[in-house]
């Protein structure tokens, strides 16, 4: 096992994005530190959808932002398209930003309320030069805006309207269009459907899937809703208190979890089926990331905790091909 175990690059090819031993800590008053991301190593393969799941405070959003260098990391390494971007300055990052974009949860807050949709979508096209290295002509920008509206199934007339004139689902379509304006390779989506109503959520999840197939995109899809993540993801990374505790193919992880936390998490999701068997829920709350438990970070709530778990922090290791877990006593697959 290498120092930083990496998940299955079985599909072959170099990862589009990879992070090694990534840490992000925040200093708090009284000398405390909050370890938001606590040593994460993973690869994002071209064309895959990597789901990042976990409960609030597990660091999934911070990790998502660190991947795109929207938040500076404390230590570790981020490689995008083979280039180390961990310490690149803003100016050097800018050309790369065309190829890595983000979609946020709050569709309203992420659109300037005083600007028309056409303006908002044209902004990235004006800021970044065209493929020939020169400023894009106005006609090219207009043509691209029409293409984008078509991609996200909005009428062209939407370009002349303001964000408040749209419903939440439509606004999220606009945000997606903006993220796609520069034809990125990687899109990090942070809880993009959790603010939407159930009946609208499915439309946007389908849109994400369609766009990925159509444009060959790679997603890092951050969400707390396991069912949504399952629908869209090729692989899933489960996070708990800043660390990835399980990583593997989506249905392998969700249906045959090796980590007791993943098992408890999937069982806790209420199914829209009457009479589905229920399990006793996990006890207690997630510990504060400021005072992370010793040893295994999950041991305070783990139903199968042993003495070793209280002192020794388990490393992420492979239990079966393409499936890694950070647990001393992983559950059997059967």
């Amino acid at each position: 096992m290498s120092a930083f175990p990496v998940s299955s690059p079985e599909q072959g090819g170099a990862p589009l994005l990879s992070v090694r031993a990534l840490r992000k800590t925040y200093s708090l008053p009284r000398g405390q530190t909050l370890k938001a991301v606590d040593g994460v190593s993973l690869d994002v393969l071209p064309g895959e959808v990597l789901g990042l799941v976990g409960e609030s405070g597990c660091g999934k959003s911070t990790l998502g932002r660190c991947l795109l260098r929207l938040t500076d990391v404390s230590s570790g390494q981020i490689t995008f398209e083979g280039q180390d971007i961990t310490h690149l300055g803003e100016r050097a990052l800018r050309p790369l930003r065309q190829r890595m974009q983000m979609v946020f949860q709050d569709s309203y807050a992420s659109l300037n309320p005083r600007r028309r949709i056409g303006d908002l979508l044209a902004e990235p096209l004006r800021v970044h030069p065209g493929p020939d290295g020169r400023k894009r002509p106005a006609a090219a920008i207009t043509a691209r805006l029409h293409e984008l509206m078509d991609l996200v199934s909005l009428p062209v007339t939407a370009l002349d309207r303001y964000p408040h004139e749209f419903s939440g689902g439509q606004r999220q379509r606009i945000n997606i269009a903006r993220a796609l304006a520069l034809s990125p390779r990687l899109v990090v989506a942070d809880e993009p459907v959790s603010a939407l109503d159930v009946s609208v959520q499915a439309q946007i999840v389908n849109l994400f899937a369609d766009l990925q197939a159509q444009l060959g995109l790679t997603y890092v899809f951050v969400a707390h809703d396991l069912a949504v993540v399952r629908q869209i993801s090729t692989r899933v990374a489960v996070m708990y208190l800043g660390a990835v505790v399980e990583l593997g193919e989506t249905d392998d992880v969700l249906h045959h979890p090796a980590h007791p936390y993943t098992a408890a998490l999937t069982q806790a999701v209420p199914r829209p089926v009457v009479g589905a068997s229920r399990h006793p829920p996990l006890r207690g709350d997630i510990p504060s990331p400021v005072a992370r438990p010793s040893g295994c970070r999950f041991h305070t709530r783990c139903p199968m905790v042993q003495d070793r778990c209280r002192v020794e922090d388990p490393a992420l290791h492979t239990v079966r091909p393409g499936h890694q877990v950070a647990c001393h006593f992983p559950l059997a697959a059967d």
């Binding site: 009946s199 959520q201 499915a202 999840v205 389908n206 069912a227 949504v228 629908q231 199914r271």
Partner: peptide
């Protein structure tokens, strides 16, 4: 339209 957590994964969600 609720994505299922169990059973087969639908190609597309019936939105």
């Amino acid at each position: 339209s609720i994505p299922p957590l169990d059973g087969p994964r639908p190609e597309r969600l019936p939105a």
